[in-house]
Design a protein around this nucleic acid. Structure first.
Lengths: 224, 224
DNA sequence: TGGATAAACCAATCATCAATTGGTTTGCAT
DNA sequence: ATGCAAACCAATTGATGATTGGTTTATCCA
């Protein structure tokens, strides 16, 4: 037999790939079809495809198919890994670093509807009859500010941060009073943030958010 | 009729919810079923459910159902999802918002070894013989600054941001010259960042980083 | 004996469609 | 007017069958 059938098939395959038109996603026909088109056995074709895969020309996955180019990144932000390494203090540090800038963007980009929504969250938080509901509206307030930044990536990072925060702070419930006191420090702080955003004052919004989070942090320290 | 049927139904509903056992996901029976169980019309039940939703006791979604507790935020921690929704401009916006604050933390918390490492990355980037290697050292410079913040959560968020950035910018290679010019704008900018961190000047570090990224952004716009 | 082929099977994925569910509208009845 | 029942809408779910890369087995042929 000829000295090297494999490279023969490999050549055939490359030739074939060069001549056909691929769909936008770079997907090439399934093995069985390809084997018929090239008039070779599936096993040999698979060897050739394996080399292509090894040299990075192609990536493949069961049930999906074979594709030209680089395998799309499958990396996902491993929230659990972050949770393992971090602690509540770091979480507050990250919030203090991150959220003021988000607020700044929100002040510059928020729509009128979003501002109204933020204000609504603030009011609902003030009127909350329980701590649980207060925290819920507080969370929603902060996230709506993220949405108002009009930057889906910032929002994604904020969500990641919040997911970690929840996991770290999990199980810590506030039992103390039944409902937030009427003069809760966050109320005026929230108000300053919202007003700054409504005024389209980015610097003020960032400052107000930073003050707010610092205040939360100091109260957190005081609680233990 | 009695003065307030709505609150009546609301009470009935709350009573019902208190007495039945819910599945662990907190899902409660669909409206139609519930209406029969409570022996009320669907419209009135919906009013009651609406109030429950307004006060945050419950969240609902078409096709999913009604659930007790907080609506789970769309934690698209999965990078692919972020990549789908964002674009290069947003990525730069997020970097400009985020990385300066990371640099500020780094200036306050970096160890001597880390400062030396950052400086090394800067030098290696300057001496890089190809754009590819330049970008490699540039990436490493920025990540080392993240490490120097001594906040693993900030570092994790930075990694997430970078993963998205790589995915979005994928395939955009710089072909123009073979190597970065000796007067590349980033060189002096990098130097200012590193010096500010070494001087423990947080404000200066943040400013320098912001200037650097803005510069990168403007060059990016100019490229098209 | 060695290598290739064909066929059958497996598990992951995709495509499709019917059923379910929260929202909305309409008509009827009290 | 107000509540109720029915019908309809659109988003989501769930189940099912087809497709696909991977693996095994049997067969054939030189």
């Amino acid at each position: 037999m000829d000295q090297n059938l494999d490279t023969d098939v490999l050549g055939k395959l490359k030739n074939f790939l060069a001549n056909i038109e691929l769909p936008d996603d770079g997907r090439l026909p399934p093995e069985r079809e390809l084997a018929q088109s090239l008039d070779v056995g599936r096993a040999v074709l698979r060897k050739a495809l394996a080399t292509l895969q090894a040299e990075g020309t192609v990536w493949r996955h069961v049930g999906k198919g074979t594709f030209l180019g680089d395998r799309p990144i499958d990396t996902f932000a491993d929230i659990n890994a972050m949770v393992q390494r971090t602690n509540p203090l770091e979480v507050m540090g990250a919030r203090i670093a991150f959220e003021p800038e988000v607020a700044r963007c929100a002040a510059l980009n928020a729509t009128g509807v979003q501002i109204a929504e933020i204000r609504n969250c603030m009011i609902k938080a003030q009127q909350a009859p329980t701590w649980r509901q207060y925290e819920q509206w507080d969370n929603r307030l902060h996230r709506t500010i993220g949405e108002a930044s009009q930057n889906s990536l910032l929002l994604g990072l904020l969500d990641t941060l919040n997911a970690v925060r929840r996991a770290v702070t999990w199980g810590r419930l506030r039992q103390t009073p039944v409902r937030p006191p009427a003069d809760h420090h966050s109320f005026t702080e929230h108000q300053q943030i919202v007003e700054a955003i409504a005024d389209r004052d980015g610097v003020m919004a960032a400052d107000a958010m930073r003050r707010h989070l610092r205040s939360v942090e100091s109260h957190m320290r005081g609680m233990r």
